[in-house]
Amino acid sequence: MLNISLGTIIWTTVAFLVVLFILKKMAWKPILEGLKKREESIEGALKAAEDAKEEMAALQSNNEELLNKARAERDLLLKEAKEIKEGIISEAKTNAKLEGDKIVAQARETIKLEKAAAITELKTQVAALAIEVAEKVVKEKLSNDNKQQELVNNLIEEVTLN
């Protein structure tokens, strides 16, 4: 136990060093390398996942931005469309009014003209009638000259031209 035996020392030295060498070359080297490789690959995978996550987040914020932009554009478009619509409506209204007014004015003009024409025609007819009447009266009256004269005078007096 506590006494030193040279034989044991020799056996231990030889066996231990041989095993140390064998293990170092054939066991610890591949084991430690394998561990390192695996750790690196895990680390790499984790990093890739983290990157992907970040990318995802970036993409998402991008999307959001895009969406916002689109929304704003849509709002703008709508607003413009509304404006245009209102513009068109109001223009149409004014146009319509103008047109209406114009039509009304034309109508009035026409009415006026028609009226004038009618009056003229009426006048002519009245005149013709009057003449006819007068002719008839005259024909009758003229049988009596005095009376004829008198009648004509009366008629003329009565008919007032407006």
Partner: peptide, 25 residues
Amino acid sequence: ISITKNVLGLLLVLFLMVFIFLRVA
């Protein structure tokens, strides 16, 4: 330089280590 009890034990342990860790490797 006999293989005493503890030398045998030592060799056994070293053999076991080589056996186990070569398998692990």
